[in-house]
């Protein structure tokens, strides 16, 4: 089943240039989709359109069969959660506990149920030990984990990561990527991740490539990420595929490969 259907979506920031230009795509339930594109290609604009922070110029968005309109905004936002790029600017509460509670308060969760929910989801992102910590005492990665807990607490079906790892250090990036994989594999959530990280893309089920507001490629990462066109639109191809190309120049017979593990295994069989 498709949980999200985007049809002929266009959006402009009012300067006659379409930031999103006639974009259509579908997202399957339980799938992990990555969206890539250079800065300014319209990636984050799509995220904001999906949760109704921006209003489309043309086209429509359906979330689990419900059309995204002003009247349905509250329903849609109960279905989709989003983690933004900047860890500081989405930490609303004065402690981890209060921050997770913020969304619960908005959705009228009874006060007596809150503690149990807060504890459960802080556990899920390994932040239970920090429940009473203030944001200034947390690292960027920890703040992002709190943001994820705050969203999971509202039990959405779909979660969007809008460059959620781009401001983190390697450890923070790794942590968040692990949480994403865990949500995808164990909780079977639908995940949309907007990213620059080629290594994350190859882990996903499906990738959408944006350039100047248009979808230029879409499909399985193992097919899309080996296309040289990516380089011409300011994106990178996976390291493993660069090696594959070089090997072919040296007449080594090897099939397309986008992960390091697969590459090593193929070469080990050839020795």
């Amino acid at each position: 089943m498709n949980v999200i259907e985007v049809n002929n979506l266009s959006f402009s920031y009012g300067d006659n240039i379409n930031a999103i230009d006639n974009v259509s795509f579908k997202i399957k339930e339980g799938s992990y989709t990555t969206i890539i594109g250079h800065n300014g290609s319209g990636k984050s604009t799509i995220a904001k359109l999906l949760i109704g922070l921006l209003e489309p110029l043309k086209g429509n968005i359906m979330v689990e069969g419900v059309p995204l309109t002003l009247e349905n905004l509250s329903i849609i936002r109960g279905k989709i959660g989003i983690v933004f790029q900047n860890p500081d600017n989405q930490f609303i509460g004065s402690t981890v506990r209060d921050d997770i509670a913020f969304g619960l308060e908005n959705y009228m969760v009874p006060q007596k149920d809150m503690d149990a929910i807060i504890e459960r989801f802080s556990d899920k992102v390994n932040m239970r030990a920090f429940l009473n910590s203030e944001p200034s005492r947390l690292s960027g990665g920890q703040k992002q984990r709190v943001a994820i807990a705050g969203i999971l607490a509202m039990s959405p079906d779909i979660i969007i990561f809008d460059e959620a790892t781009s401001m983190l250090d390697p450890k923070g990036k790794e942590d968040i990527k692990n949480v994403i994989m865990q949500l995808h594999k164990e909780s079977k959530m639908t995940i949309i991740s907007i990213t620059h990280d080629v290594e994350e893309v190859v882990e996903s089920d499906n990738v959408i490539v944006l350039n100047q507001g248009k979808i230029v490629m879409e499909g399985k990462p193992s097919k899309v990420m080996v296309n040289k066109k990516l380089l011409s639109i300011g994106l990178d191809i996976p390291f493993s595929y660069k090696v594959v190309e070089e090997l072919r120049k040296q007449k080594v017979k090897i099939s397309d490969e986008v992960t390091m593990e697969g590459l090593v295994n193929q070469l080990a069989n050839l020795i």
Partner: peptide, 17 residues
């Protein structure tokens, strides 16, 4: 944006933690 995305709307009734 973050507040709105998490269902906050000024004037709307909320519970309190």
């Amino acid at each position: 944006n973050a507040m709105e995305a998490r269902g906050y709307s000024p004037g709307k009734p909320r519970t309190r933690y």
